[in-house]
């Protein structure tokens, strides 16, 4: 799906003018039974109706047309409500990789909704959900992302989730992550990839810290 631009934090969802309010029942019918073009148009029209979030999310389950899916995800991200965020988070459990990816793109476009939800997601019972949640931490400020990813590394046993956290730290990590990364790499039986990844992340964090020190000197 196309990159969804993040909405400004706290921006209200648009509320339709009652005189020109869309016919939600007709749009719902078009979304469920129309041609791909009609479904896409209906999804775009419903993107301005906050109460239609559930309707849009439900339509994703049976929707196979990529363009219609894009319109729905863009609409949910544009609405940007807490309900939209929860509906999108539920899709991270979908067996459909396209739905998981679309949900991640849409969630990344609504960063204001993530800080309250990420900690629980990072402790989810499903390691695949925890792994995807790590990627979402990229939209947070670097200190916040560093704290969350370090906490993941301290408690996480699943190597792929650790690798996802290390990938975020390699990009955003602050120096306080260095001892956590070192402990992660030193775990008995750590997979070769995790040892490699932690080494790269530590080098990048040290280099960024050195550059910041030189700039401040």
């Amino acid at each position: 799906m196309p990159l969804i631009r993040p909405k400004a934090a706290g921006a209200p969802a648009s509320s339709p003018d009652p005189r020109t309010a869309p016919d939600v029942a007709a749009l719902k019918a078009a979304l469920q039974h129309g041609t791909p073009d009609a479904r896409r148009a209906a999804a775009r029209a419903l993107a301005g109706v906050p109460e239609a979030a559930g309707l849009l999310a439900a339509a994703l389950a049976g929707e196979e047309d990529i363009r219609v899916r894009e319109a729905i995800f863009t609409g949910l991200a544009g609405l940007g409500t807490g309900e939209c965020a929860d509906l999108l988070l539920a899709l991270l459990r979908s067996p459909d990789a396209g739905l998981r990816g679309g949900a991640l793109d849409a969630l990344a476009a609504m960063p204001a909704r993530l800080p309250a939800r990420l900690p629980a997601l990072l402790r989810d019972d499903d390691p695949d959900v925890r792994l995807l949640a790590c990627g979402l931490a990229r939209v947070l400020a670097s200190d916040e992302a560093t704290a969350l990813m370090c906490a993941v590394l301290e408690r996480e046993a699943e190597p792929n989730v650790c690798a996802a956290a290390v990938d975020v730290l390699a990009e955003l990590g602050e120096p306080q992550a260095l001892p956590v990364l070192a402990r992660c790499a030193a775990r008995p039986g750590a997979p070769a990839f995790l040892v490699f990844a932690t080494g790269i992340a530590m080098r990048r964090i040290r280099a960024a810290s050195d550059r910041a020190g030189e700039a401040g000197a």
Partner: peptide
Amino acid sequence: VNMPRMDGLT
């Protein structure tokens, strides 16, 4: 498999 914008299976 899991990637933004277009996943591996698509």
